[in-house]
């Protein structure tokens, strides 16, 4: 006997909410991206602009490089700290990981402020570096400055993922493989990497998607000086050079880039999974 399940009734609030504040705005973005800013006529010019005009192409290239660099630094740093954390005693690990979950909720502007004081032109570290060590000052307002600043988000994010991944790595699995005569490289390729891969790829997916769209800290540090796709959208959607259709087209391009990156990472993950489609 199966009556009408009341579960669907409980989904009404979130359905209304998502419809009104996610699907409706998203539909508007997609529709407006195909209109002309002045005449309102249907056009693909905004997309043509995105792939032909130097400023958008430049920002597209910058975004890919910047997000890639941030993800690389986050992945390496987070894997390293995560590995260290997994080797610590549970109590110490708990304290460390508690600290590493703090940046998640921190305002992008607070992070910008902290890094200006620490690494800005007259930042504490820069004074120490130049006065006592004679090393040239670190330029916070450059691309690598932005990567270092955003690492404050990315390394902790990756650390939290990788710590649990390393904790789940079953040592007896490695020993069993060694006992069965596997060489060190075989243990890595057939045992360790397939076990680590899903968590690692889930971690870098979150970091990469976040960095492709990031702009808050960058805006606070360098204004519009560093051309990122997200900053181009921001300037067209809310600043003086108001052009909503162009902002919308760039936003759609950004979404497509994020989706393609996530799908690619997902595909790689499936290939690495034991017994996956890869072998």
């Amino acid at each position: 006997m199966r009556r009408f399940s009341h579960e669907w009734f409980f989904l009404i609030p979130i359905t209304v909410f998502l419809g009104l504040f996610v699907f409706y705005p998203l539909t508007r973005v997609v529709l407006r991206s195909f209109t002309d800013n002045f005449t309102g006529h249907c056009t693909v010019q905004n997309y043509l602009n995105a792939f032909t005009q130097a400023r958008y192409l430049g920002s597209l290239k910058n975004t890919l490089w910047f997000a890639g660099a941030c993800t690389l630094v986050g992945a390496v740093g987070g894997t390293f700290v995560g590995l260290l954390a997994s080797r610590m005693s549970p109590k110490v690990r708990g304290v460390l990981l508690s600290f590493y979950s703090l940046p998640m909720t921190l305002s992008s502007l607070v992070v910008a402020f902290a890094f200006i004081v620490l690494l800005g032109r007259n930042g504490v570290f820069n004074i120490i570096l130049s006065r006592y060590l004679g090393i040239p000052k670190f330029d916070l307002y450059s691309w690598h400055g932005l990567v270092v600043t955003y690492s404050f988000y990315n390394i902790p994010l990756m650390t939290l993922t990788m710590a649990s991944v390393f904790l789940n790595l079953d040592r007896s699995l490695i020993e069993a493989a060694r006992n069965l005569g596997a060489k060190a490289w075989q243990v890595w390729i057939y045992v360790i990497i397939p076990v680590l891969a899903p968590g690692f790829i889930a971690g870098i997916s979150i970091v990469l998607a976040g960095m492709l769209a990031a702009f808050g800290t960058a805006l606070a540090l360098t204004g519009m000086a560093k051309s990122l796709l997200s900053l181009q959208i921001y300037s067209h959607a809310s600043e003086s050079n108001y052009n909503i259709p162009q902002a919308s087209a760039l936003a759609v391009v950004l979404i497509v880039i994020i989706v393609v990156s996530l799908l690619t990472l997902n595909w790689i993950e499936r290939r690495l999974r034991p017994g996956g489609e890869g072998r």
Partner: peptide, 19 residues
Amino acid sequence: IFPLIFPPIVVGTGFVQAF
């Protein structure tokens, strides 16, 4: 997956024109 493919910049772009 939602927050990944619908980041703040996209939410903002949607909100400025939808309401």
